[in-house]
Design a protein around this nucleic acid. Sequence first.
RNA 1: GGGGCUGUAGCUCAGCAGGAUAGAGCGACCGCCUCCUAAGCGGUAGGUCGUGGGUUCAAAUCCCGCCAGCCCCGCCA
Length: 590
Amino acid sequence: MNTSAMKSTVAQLKTQIQRAMVAAFGEDLAHIDPMLVPTSNPKFGDFQANVAMSLAKPLKQSPRDIARQIVENLDLGDLCDTPDIAGPGFINLRLKTAYLEAQLKAMQADPRLGVAPVNQPQTVIVDFSSPNIAKEMHVGHLRSTIIGDSMARVQEFMGHRVLRLNHVGDWGTQFGMLITHLKEACPEALEASSTVDIGDLVAFYKQAKLRFDTDDDFKTRSREAVVDLQAGEDTATKAWKVLCAQSRQEFQKLYDRLDIQIQERGESFYNPFLADVVQDLEAQGLLVEDQGAKVVFVDGFTNKDGNPLPLIIQKSDGGYNYATTDLAAIRYRTGKDGAERVLYVVDAGQGNHFAQVFQVGAKAGWIPDGVELTHVPFGVVQGEDGKKFKTRSGDTVRLKDLLDEAVSRARTDLETRIQSEERQETEDFIQDVAEAVGIGAVKYADLSQNRTSNYIFSFDKMLALQGNTAPYMLYAYVRVQGIARKGGIDFDHLPAEAGIHLADDSEFALSRYLLQLDTVLEEVAQDLYPNRLCQYLFELSQTFNQFYDRCSVLQAEEPQRTSRLILCDLTAKTLKLGLSLLGIRVLERM
RNA sequence: GGGGCUGUAGCUCAGCAGGAUAGAGCGACCGCCUCCUAAGCGGUAGGUCGUGGGUUCAAAUCCCGCCAGCCCCGCCA
């Protein structure tokens, strides 16, 4: 059985129920959704159809009678036992054991674990991370980077062509002060290809900002520098490049550590297209001159006085701003890149901005039919006091420091455990495990929350090593590998003819979870909520741990032993795949 | 003034394309290692799902009002 045959369990059940509905009540019901969902409780079987209750009124019959007539016309072949009718009129379906066993075997033979690639791959752009040049990546970039990376991985796995874009802040008026300060405070940086340390560059940014805020002459020179830069003047351009190169190097260290692939395409990339945006909007009669600026008035937004809200396309001084850049980016992405779906993984505070920019893009005809631009918003990271996450001294938390601390705490935990268990482990092992656990914990803690709400950051909670955390799942994976080591098992060479024989409740529970992977991933790919994948992996791990607790594997008699080994293997592979789609790597031992 | 997000157990959060007794983790309490890593498993206690209406056979979930918190709203990005 191949992937596409596997994923059709739900589809098959739906089709059959629909047929039964038509057979019982006529063609009118041909397009009524049977309302088939997984059961709320395993004791009700695997799936429940809730359609009977909703038909009671139109059919003027009792829900239970309707359910009975549907069931009488229902042909589920080898999929299910005879359905039960329960409660007010639920139709409960229980998959036949033989069917489950066959599905699991098919999953074992499939490198994609039963998840079919999409039929029609799209070109998907994921716009995420987007730090600002000359600033250090900090906790504020954490969510976009982690969520964006995971969503890109999921889209890729589903078979889409994915372009991961880092829309870095490498342009704009802040470069005026940076360039000016660089020229005056650090002229040697403009001479040779000498390098400035990023730590210095961050301090450098602060110095420039301070001068800009306190020194009017400096402010004036900075504004002139912006004009120079925009005009392509040599010194200003050189200074800008120096700043960008420095930042890029530092960013890359973090991306490497986080195992994140992303292609830099900063705001400056769109500079050559900004004038076209203005021209085109003007030609279409969408542009209005207001208080010296060129703007488009957007529908559905008003300012504090209740007047229509403009989106500024060109400032009164002739400069462009980020709305212009974003519009140019829309044109480029839907045009040159051929994007059919663009995901902007950007904090929720920019909801208005994206709604406005998308609206203008649509009005201007830059968003072809069938192309979907989606703002994927997320809440802010807060400290345990519920306020903005800061260091004790009140500074922004640097991303590097945050990762270091997570790894360091993971290492301390690990060393304590190694000591108490009287194990001997190498430094390489300890370092590797600490890094995987620490980084994995940071990522998982973020991804496991519904992204729309604010996120309270807590080292203690993410590294608690119990509960819905990365270590819990890594441990479940490690347990399987432990079985393989102990038993000298090579999962890739289990007897091909070996079957699955489900008996214990925990084996059935585990099987049901394993077979939900495809549904979960399709949901995540569509709805872009990584926490659903986390939830699934957590519940799978819990179910596995229950199975592990109740069923011995290596000491079981055949054919039970091999059957259980297959369940273990499938669990491990599912965890490994799921975690990899979250950007988290597994460990063989920990 | 407008828009958005959030409000569920002591804490942190799931659930919200309506469905059976509202779930998990942490914390508290009680158990379980002669046996594949106990970073585990089982159990107990703990909830007017902010609030008031409405729709429905059925509402934490959908609609409206209100209350509370956070965020955004013209030349920064």
